[in-house]
């Protein structure tokens, strides 16, 4: 196989990589918003429960989470496709990380913002929705881009639960073609081609959002 054929062969898995990423975002974005805001607002027992859920998804090793849900859910009588399980696990793991950015973004706003909203007679939900969240999400947008890159890279794991993503394709090709240098270089290159533009976009965003912190670099 020529280098180009290997590379094209690997890119056949790009569809699954993209699909897992997209479905992963369907889980990650709502989780990050709801749990990030909840951790910011809640107190006492509620806060403990919210934190426990976040920590389960964030502090567990993602490899183990994936295998755990892939093998344990059927035993519990829940049958989901490999694609759904992968999207759920990788999405909530990424969402767990992003929820911390949501919370930190809200916490780092000067209290004067909320006070100004209250002085204008706005309700607490209105202050959150109209004043605090927009600022926090913009300030944290470079971090969300990093979370997205981590999610894309984590999709390589789905090759271990039978999904034919780019990593799976690389291993398939390696079974018929003994050329590990070309095959695994091509795999790295394929991910680089996908992730690097996102990283550059993140740096551009960082420079716009945090001009004074412009030296810190994304990914």
């Amino acid at each position: 196989m020529s280098l180009l054929e290997i590379w094209l062969g690997i890119l056949q898995g790009l569809g699954i990589t993209a699909e897992v990423t997209a479905y992963g975002l369907v889980f990650a974005v709502p989780f990050a918003l709801v749990f990030g805001v909840a951790q910011f607002l809640a107190t006492g027992m509620t806060r403990f429960v919210v934190t426990a859920v976040i920590e389960f998804w964030r502090s567990s090793a993602v490899v183990i989470l994936l295998f755990f849900f892939y093998y344990v859910l059927p035993v519990m009588g829940v049958t989901l496709s490999a694609l759904t399980v992968s999207s759920l696990v990788l999405g909530l793991n990424a969402g767990g990380y992003a929820s911390q950015a949501v919370r930190a973004g809200l916490q780092s706003l000067p209290p004067g913002q909320r006070e100004a909203g209250m002085a204008l007679g706005l309700s607490r939900p209105a202050i959150l929705l109209l004043i605090e969240l927009p600022q926090a999400l913009v300030a944290m947008s470079p971090t969300f881009v990093n979370n997205l890159i981590q999610l894309v890279k984590a999709t390589s794991l789905v090759s271990l639960v039978t999904l034919t993503d780019m990593t799976f394709r690389a291993k398939e090709i390696a079974q018929t073609d003994y050329d590990p240098v070309a095959i695994y270089s091509a795999l790295l290159l394929a991910f680089f081609v996908v992730c690097y533009p996102i990283a550059l976009a993140g740096r551009w965003l960082e420079a716009r959002v945090n001009p004074e912190r412009g030296t810190s670099r994304g990914i």
């Binding site: 090759s159 990593t167 695994y184 795999l187 790295l188 991910f191 990283a199 990914i219």
Partner: peptide, 11 residues
């Protein structure tokens, strides 16, 4: 930083 750890391990 633009490539997954799994791909590096295989590599």
């Amino acid at each position: 930083r633009s490539t997954p750890v799994l791909a590096w391990l295989y590599f």
